[in-house]
Amino acid sequence: MVKVTMTVNGRTASGEVEGRTLLSGFLREELGLTGTHVGCDTSQCGACVVHVDGKAVKSCTMLAAEADGAEIATIEGQAAPDGTLNVIQQAFQDHHGLQCGFCTPGMVMSAAALLKDNPKPSEQEIREYLEGNLCRCTGYHNIVKAIMAASGQDVSAVAAE
């Protein structure tokens, strides 16, 4: 067993993990942060995306031990303390960018990483950035639209509300 300590959503979190424990498993099982979802076993689906030291990472591809000392941000830490949704979360709700909600945490965390690097991405840049995030419900239409809206772009011309 390995002792790990990391900062998760601004709080210090420690635990004893097996060497093979994935960061996704540590977050879900040890810390009870079940907002990070696991939808595959080949690092394709992106439901488990979190931020590690500010970068989007699929938490199923990283060992918990590797995250020792890191700053982790998960979906649970995205809204304000009073519950107000952040800009991206709010845009997803406003534009119906989610249905079953399972891919949503990863989508929101990926979108946040995209907008940090590219504050006004084009439709095509968004679609390409989301290559690693699968959604089975929305056909991506409203996800792309929500991310455009979150970046302050006018999406009224995009077909269908």
Partner: peptide, 20 residues
Amino acid sequence: ASFMDYAMPRADDLPFYKVD
């Protein structure tokens, strides 16, 4: 037998749709 082999549609495979 995995998302490595089964081609799920991704965001850049699809356009915006016009629905009415």
